[in-house]
Design a protein around this nucleic acid. Structure first.
Length: 276
DNA sequence: ATGGTCGTAAGACGA
Protein backbone atom coordinates (compact mmCIF):
# COMPACT_ATOMS: atom_id res chain seq x y z
CA UNK A 1 0.00 0.00 0.00
CA UNK A 2 1.50 3.37 -0.99
CA UNK A 3 1.72 5.91 1.76
CA UNK A 4 0.58 9.47 1.41
CA UNK A 5 1.22 12.23 3.89
CA UNK A 6 -1.83 13.98 5.28
CA UNK A 7 -2.21 17.13 7.33
CA UNK A 8 1.51 17.76 6.82
CA UNK A 9 2.53 14.81 8.95
CA UNK A 10 3.90 11.40 8.09
CA UNK A 11 1.35 8.62 8.34
CA UNK A 12 1.73 6.12 11.13
CA UNK A 13 0.27 2.63 10.95
CA UNK A 14 -0.93 0.99 14.13
CA UNK A 15 -2.07 -2.63 13.97
CA UNK A 16 -3.61 -4.88 16.62
CA UNK A 17 -3.99 -8.66 16.61
CA UNK A 18 -5.05 -11.30 19.08
CA UNK A 19 -2.44 -13.79 17.93
CA UNK A 20 -3.47 -16.64 20.28
CA UNK A 21 0.10 -17.84 20.96
CA UNK A 22 2.99 -15.80 19.62
CA UNK A 23 5.32 -18.80 19.51
CA UNK A 24 2.96 -20.98 17.49
CA UNK A 25 2.05 -18.23 15.04
CA UNK A 26 5.36 -16.40 14.72
CA UNK A 27 5.61 -17.38 11.01
CA UNK A 28 2.28 -15.67 10.31
CA UNK A 29 3.64 -12.33 11.47
CA UNK A 30 5.65 -12.15 8.26
CA UNK A 31 2.44 -12.33 6.23
CA UNK A 32 0.82 -9.73 8.42
CA UNK A 33 3.75 -7.35 7.93
CA UNK A 34 3.70 -7.92 4.16
CA UNK A 35 -0.03 -7.15 4.01
CA UNK A 36 -0.33 -4.21 6.38
CA UNK A 37 3.20 -2.78 6.82
CA UNK A 38 2.51 -1.60 10.36
CA UNK A 39 4.89 0.74 12.18
CA UNK A 40 3.54 -0.56 15.47
CA UNK A 41 1.93 -3.93 16.13
CA UNK A 42 0.06 -4.65 19.36
CA UNK A 43 -0.47 -8.32 20.20
CA UNK A 44 -2.81 -10.00 22.67
CA UNK A 45 -2.93 -13.55 24.01
CA UNK A 46 0.76 -14.10 23.41
CA UNK A 47 0.58 -16.96 25.97
CA UNK A 48 4.29 -16.65 26.49
CA UNK A 49 6.43 -15.91 29.55
CA UNK A 50 8.72 -12.93 28.91
CA UNK A 51 11.90 -15.04 29.06
CA UNK A 52 10.60 -17.20 26.19
CA UNK A 53 9.36 -14.39 23.91
CA UNK A 54 10.70 -14.84 20.36
CA UNK A 55 12.51 -11.50 20.20
CA UNK A 56 14.88 -12.55 17.41
CA UNK A 57 12.16 -13.57 15.00
CA UNK A 58 10.20 -10.41 15.66
CA UNK A 59 13.27 -8.18 15.34
CA UNK A 60 14.00 -9.79 11.97
CA UNK A 61 10.71 -8.35 10.73
CA UNK A 62 11.97 -4.85 11.45
CA UNK A 63 10.58 -4.31 14.93
CA UNK A 64 13.65 -3.00 16.69
CA UNK A 65 11.65 -1.85 19.71
CA UNK A 66 9.67 -4.35 21.74
CA UNK A 67 7.95 -4.41 25.10
CA UNK A 68 6.33 -7.58 26.38
CA UNK A 69 4.20 -8.44 29.38
CA UNK A 70 3.55 -12.15 29.44
CA UNK A 71 2.93 -15.07 31.77
CA UNK A 72 2.82 -18.84 31.58
CA UNK A 73 -0.12 -20.31 29.71
CA UNK A 74 -2.62 -17.48 29.56
CA UNK A 75 -3.13 -13.86 28.49
CA UNK A 76 -0.05 -11.80 27.64
CA UNK A 77 0.39 -8.63 25.58
CA UNK A 78 3.22 -7.17 23.52
CA UNK A 79 3.98 -3.99 21.60
CA UNK A 80 6.33 -4.33 18.63
CA UNK A 81 7.49 -1.12 17.03
CA UNK A 82 9.74 0.32 14.34
CA UNK A 83 9.87 3.57 16.30
CA UNK A 84 11.07 4.04 19.89
CA UNK A 85 8.62 3.19 22.66
CA UNK A 86 8.92 3.91 26.36
CA UNK A 87 7.04 1.97 29.03
CA UNK A 88 4.55 4.01 31.05
CA UNK A 89 5.39 3.06 34.60
CA UNK A 90 2.36 4.59 36.32
CA UNK A 91 -0.44 2.57 34.71
CA UNK A 92 -2.74 0.44 36.92
CA UNK A 93 -2.52 -3.27 37.68
CA UNK A 94 -6.02 -4.02 36.44
CA UNK A 95 -8.29 -5.55 39.08
CA UNK A 96 -5.13 -6.12 41.12
CA UNK A 97 -4.55 -9.44 39.41
CA UNK A 98 -1.19 -8.96 37.75
CA UNK A 99 -2.52 -10.96 34.83
CA UNK A 100 -0.79 -9.29 31.87
CA UNK A 101 -3.77 -7.74 30.10
CA UNK A 102 -2.42 -4.25 29.42
CA UNK A 103 0.70 -2.49 28.25
CA UNK A 104 0.93 1.30 28.00
CA UNK A 105 3.72 3.12 26.20
CA UNK A 106 4.80 6.51 25.01
CA UNK A 107 5.36 6.18 21.25
CA UNK A 108 7.81 8.39 19.41
CA UNK A 109 5.44 9.50 16.59
CA UNK A 110 6.37 11.88 13.74
CA UNK A 111 4.49 14.78 15.33
CA UNK A 112 5.60 14.11 18.91
CA UNK A 113 4.88 11.49 21.58
CA UNK A 114 1.65 9.51 21.45
CA UNK A 115 0.22 7.63 24.40
CA UNK A 116 -0.54 4.09 23.20
CA UNK A 117 -2.42 1.46 25.20
CA UNK A 118 -2.76 -2.21 24.31
CA UNK A 119 -5.60 -4.07 26.08
CA UNK A 120 -6.76 -7.65 26.40
CA UNK A 121 -10.07 -7.45 28.25
CA UNK A 122 -11.31 -10.65 29.96
CA UNK A 123 -13.57 -12.75 27.74
CA UNK A 124 -15.98 -13.20 30.62
CA UNK A 125 -16.95 -16.88 30.47
CA UNK A 126 -20.25 -18.26 29.19
CA UNK A 127 -22.93 -17.08 31.64
CA UNK A 128 -23.72 -13.34 31.58
CA UNK A 129 -24.38 -13.11 35.32
CA UNK A 130 -21.76 -11.93 37.80
CA UNK A 131 -23.42 -13.85 40.67
CA UNK A 132 -23.21 -17.19 38.86
CA UNK A 133 -20.02 -16.51 36.93
CA UNK A 134 -17.07 -14.69 38.52
CA UNK A 135 -15.38 -14.34 35.12
CA UNK A 136 -18.25 -12.17 33.95
CA UNK A 137 -17.87 -10.08 37.09
CA UNK A 138 -14.16 -9.71 36.39
CA UNK A 139 -14.93 -8.49 32.88
CA UNK A 140 -17.41 -5.87 34.11
CA UNK A 141 -15.02 -4.77 36.87
CA UNK A 142 -12.19 -4.41 34.36
CA UNK A 143 -14.31 -2.22 32.08
CA UNK A 144 -15.48 -0.14 35.06
CA UNK A 145 -11.85 0.43 36.07
CA UNK A 146 -11.05 1.46 32.53
CA UNK A 147 -13.93 3.90 32.54
CA UNK A 148 -12.75 5.57 35.74
CA UNK A 149 -9.14 5.55 34.54
CA UNK A 150 -10.06 7.30 31.26
CA UNK A 151 -12.46 9.77 32.85
CA UNK A 152 -9.81 10.88 35.34
CA UNK A 153 -7.35 11.93 32.66
CA UNK A 154 -8.60 13.39 29.39
CA UNK A 155 -6.93 11.70 26.44
CA UNK A 156 -4.65 13.90 24.33
CA UNK A 157 -2.68 12.38 21.47
CA UNK A 158 -3.77 8.97 22.72
CA UNK A 159 -4.66 5.67 21.06
CA UNK A 160 -6.03 2.54 22.67
CA UNK A 161 -6.28 -0.75 20.84
CA UNK A 162 -6.85 -4.37 21.56
CA UNK A 163 -9.15 -7.31 22.02
CA UNK A 164 -11.88 -5.66 24.09
CA UNK A 165 -14.03 -8.82 23.85
CA UNK A 166 -17.20 -6.74 23.41
CA UNK A 167 -19.04 -6.05 20.14
CA UNK A 168 -20.93 -2.85 20.94
CA UNK A 169 -23.00 -2.08 17.84
CA UNK A 170 -25.91 -3.96 16.28
CA UNK A 171 -23.88 -4.60 13.13
CA UNK A 172 -20.78 -5.63 15.06
CA UNK A 173 -22.38 -9.08 15.30
CA UNK A 174 -23.99 -11.43 12.78
CA UNK A 175 -27.32 -11.39 14.60
CA UNK A 176 -28.06 -8.70 17.15
CA UNK A 177 -31.22 -10.51 18.28
CA UNK A 178 -29.60 -13.92 18.71
CA UNK A 179 -26.60 -12.55 20.60
CA UNK A 180 -28.39 -10.37 23.16
CA UNK A 181 -27.84 -13.08 25.80
CA UNK A 182 -24.41 -14.12 24.57
CA UNK A 183 -21.37 -12.82 26.44
CA UNK A 184 -19.70 -10.14 24.24
CA UNK A 185 -22.95 -8.51 23.10
CA UNK A 186 -25.20 -8.35 26.18
CA UNK A 187 -26.73 -4.93 26.92
CA UNK A 188 -24.83 -4.63 30.22
CA UNK A 189 -21.47 -5.14 28.49
CA UNK A 190 -22.37 -2.86 25.60
CA UNK A 191 -23.48 -0.12 27.98
CA UNK A 192 -20.32 -0.52 30.06
CA UNK A 193 -18.01 -0.28 27.05
CA UNK A 194 -19.95 2.63 25.61
CA UNK A 195 -19.67 4.45 28.94
CA UNK A 196 -15.88 3.99 28.84
CA UNK A 197 -15.74 5.32 25.29
CA UNK A 198 -18.04 8.26 26.02
CA UNK A 199 -16.49 9.23 29.34
CA UNK A 200 -12.97 9.08 27.96
CA UNK A 201 -13.99 11.00 24.82
CA UNK A 202 -12.60 8.19 22.71
CA UNK A 203 -13.44 7.94 19.00
CA UNK A 204 -14.08 4.54 17.39
CA UNK A 205 -11.55 4.62 14.55
CA UNK A 206 -12.92 1.60 12.66
CA UNK A 207 -16.44 2.98 12.60
CA UNK A 208 -14.94 6.27 11.43
CA UNK A 209 -14.31 4.43 8.16
CA UNK A 210 -17.11 1.84 8.10
CA UNK A 211 -20.69 3.14 8.56
CA UNK A 212 -22.60 1.73 11.54
CA UNK A 213 -25.21 0.08 9.30
CA UNK A 214 -22.58 -2.15 7.65
CA UNK A 215 -21.53 -5.48 9.15
CA UNK A 216 -17.96 -5.49 10.42
CA UNK A 217 -16.29 -8.42 12.18
CA UNK A 218 -12.78 -9.16 13.43
CA UNK A 219 -13.40 -12.61 14.99
CA UNK A 220 -14.91 -15.86 13.78
CA UNK A 221 -15.23 -18.86 16.09
CA UNK A 222 -13.04 -21.92 15.66
CA UNK A 223 -16.14 -24.02 16.22
CA UNK A 224 -17.88 -23.27 12.95
CA UNK A 225 -17.59 -25.98 10.34
CA UNK A 226 -17.01 -23.34 7.67
CA UNK A 227 -16.33 -19.93 9.21
CA UNK A 228 -16.47 -18.15 5.83
CA UNK A 229 -19.75 -19.68 4.70
CA UNK A 230 -21.48 -19.23 8.06
CA UNK A 231 -19.93 -15.77 8.54
CA UNK A 232 -21.12 -15.63 12.13
CA UNK A 233 -18.55 -13.06 13.17
CA UNK A 234 -18.21 -10.43 15.84
CA UNK A 235 -16.20 -7.19 16.08
CA UNK A 236 -14.24 -7.77 19.26
CA UNK A 237 -11.04 -5.94 18.31
CA UNK A 238 -10.95 -2.17 18.40
CA UNK A 239 -8.92 0.96 17.79
CA UNK A 240 -9.96 4.08 19.69
CA UNK A 241 -8.27 7.45 19.27
CA UNK A 242 -8.52 10.71 21.18
CA UNK A 243 -10.57 13.45 19.52
CA UNK A 244 -7.49 15.48 18.58
CA UNK A 245 -6.30 12.60 16.35
CA UNK A 246 -9.58 12.00 14.51
CA UNK A 247 -8.75 14.51 11.78
CA UNK A 248 -5.54 12.61 11.04
CA UNK A 249 -7.22 9.26 10.29
CA UNK A 250 -6.32 8.30 6.72
CA UNK A 251 -7.10 4.61 6.21
CA UNK A 252 -7.98 1.32 7.84
CA UNK A 253 -7.80 -2.39 7.13
CA UNK A 254 -9.41 -5.50 8.59
CA UNK A 255 -7.30 -8.39 7.30
CA UNK A 256 -10.11 -10.91 6.88
CA UNK A 257 -7.86 -13.10 4.70
CA UNK A 258 -5.86 -13.91 7.84
CA UNK A 259 -8.76 -15.99 9.16
CA UNK A 260 -8.19 -18.37 6.26
CA UNK A 261 -4.44 -18.72 6.77
CA UNK A 262 -3.07 -22.12 7.70
CA UNK A 263 -3.17 -22.48 11.48
CA UNK A 264 -5.05 -19.18 11.81
CA UNK A 265 -5.93 -17.27 14.95
CA UNK A 266 -9.66 -16.89 15.50
CA UNK A 267 -9.09 -13.10 15.43
CA UNK A 268 -7.84 -11.18 12.40
CA UNK A 269 -5.44 -8.21 12.41
CA UNK A 270 -6.85 -4.71 12.29
CA UNK A 271 -4.89 -1.65 11.13
CA UNK A 272 -5.46 2.09 11.25
CA UNK A 273 -3.28 4.67 9.52
CA UNK A 274 -3.12 8.09 11.04
CA UNK A 275 -1.19 11.27 10.34
CA UNK A 276 0.20 11.92 13.78
C1' DA B 1 -28.66 -29.96 17.37
C1' DT B 2 -26.87 -26.69 24.17
C1' DG B 3 -22.71 -29.28 20.00
C1' DG B 4 -18.62 -27.62 17.82
C1' DT B 5 -12.45 -26.30 17.98
C1' DC B 6 -8.49 -24.27 19.44
C1' DG B 7 -3.67 -23.50 22.70
C1' DT B 8 -1.25 -24.56 26.71
C1' DA B 9 0.84 -28.14 28.57
C1' DA B 10 0.26 -32.51 30.25
C1' DG B 11 -5.35 -32.98 32.78
C1' DA B 12 -8.20 -29.40 32.80
C1' DC B 13 -9.07 -24.81 31.84
C1' DG B 14 -9.79 -20.70 29.28
C1' DA B 15 -11.52 -18.85 25.04
Amino acid sequence: MPRKAAAGRAPLRIATWNINSVRLRLPLLKDLVAALEPDVLCLQETKCPDELFPHEGVAALGFGHRLVRGMKGYNGVAILSKRPILLREDDPDWCGKGDCRHLGVSLDAPGGPIELHNFYIPAGGDIPDREKNPKFGHKLDFVAEGTAWSAARPARRAIMVGDLNIAPLEHDVWSHKQLLDVVSHTPIEVEALTAWQRGGEWHDALRHFVPADQKLYTWWSYRARDWRAADRGRRLDHVWVSQDLVGGLTRHAVLKDARGWTQASDHVPVMVEIAA
